[in-house]
Design a protein around this nucleic acid. Structure first.
Length: 190
DNA sequence: GCCAACGTTGGC
DNA sequence: GCCAACGTTGGC
């Protein structure tokens, strides 16, 4: 899949600097107890790659490539672990909504689209020996019984602190266990 | 299509 | 290293 269709021009000549996680805003997302499973949300524009496309893909699995934002990159490289659960979110959609559940089946590895000069996601600064950009493989597990829309999420007091709402423009964001359960419960109730 | 939020770039 | 200009995301 590709995260979105618009071509990117990436001309940075060096690896983006990022602060050590323990100092960063998302520090807690990079540590976990033994055997702990975390939850995430990943955004895709359905016109480009929808949850139906993932269901139709071989093994219901895709490389989640094309993410070109250092915050999201850090999550892909170091945050998402095999077995973590992921909400599949349709962005720029009518309406934007969480539509399905996936599982991480392969942890962060080099995003090869950055190496392909013909790709919209080509980045001359990233090479195989020292990749700048990373991707994971996700597998579709379940479609939600019904989509849980962004307006609903915003209207929910219990979900007011979701990273999805608090920090827009991040293609990969963490989801707490509580938030996960609330969203799933909402999807079960008409 | 507009624009707010915010990340990135580059001049100094 | 600061910060203004610029670019991108994505809701509306």
């Amino acid at each position: 899949m590709t995260a979105k269709k618009s071509a990117k021009k990436l001309t940075s000549g060096k690896l983006p600097q990022s602060k050590p996680y323990e100092e960063g805003k998302w520090a807690a997302e990079f540590t976990r107890g033994k055997g702990e499973r975390r939850n995430w949300l990943m955004k895709s524009e359905p016109d480009v790659f929808s949850f139906d496309d993932l269901i139709a893909a071989k093994n219901k699995t895709t490389h989640w490539d094309g993410v070109r934002n250092t915050g999201a990159r850090n999550f892909l490289r170091d945050g998402l672990k095999r077995g973590d659960r992921v909400f599949f979110y349709h962005s720029n959609a009518e309406p934007s909504a969480i539509v399905g559940i996936c599982e991480v089946v392969k942890e962060g590895y080099a995003d090869s689209s950055a190496f392909d000069p013909k790709s919209d996601y080509y980045d001359a600064a990233s090479d195989a020996a020292h990749p700048t950009w990373f991707m994971v493989d996700v597998k579709a597990i379940d479609r939600l019984k019904r989509p849980v829309t962004l307006p609903e999420i915003k209207a929910s007091v219990a979900l007011a602190n979701m990273a999805l709402v608090r920090v827009s423009r991040l293609a990969v964001v963490p989801v707490t266990d509580t938030e996960w359960d609330i969203v799933v419960e909402m999807s079960r109730q008409g």
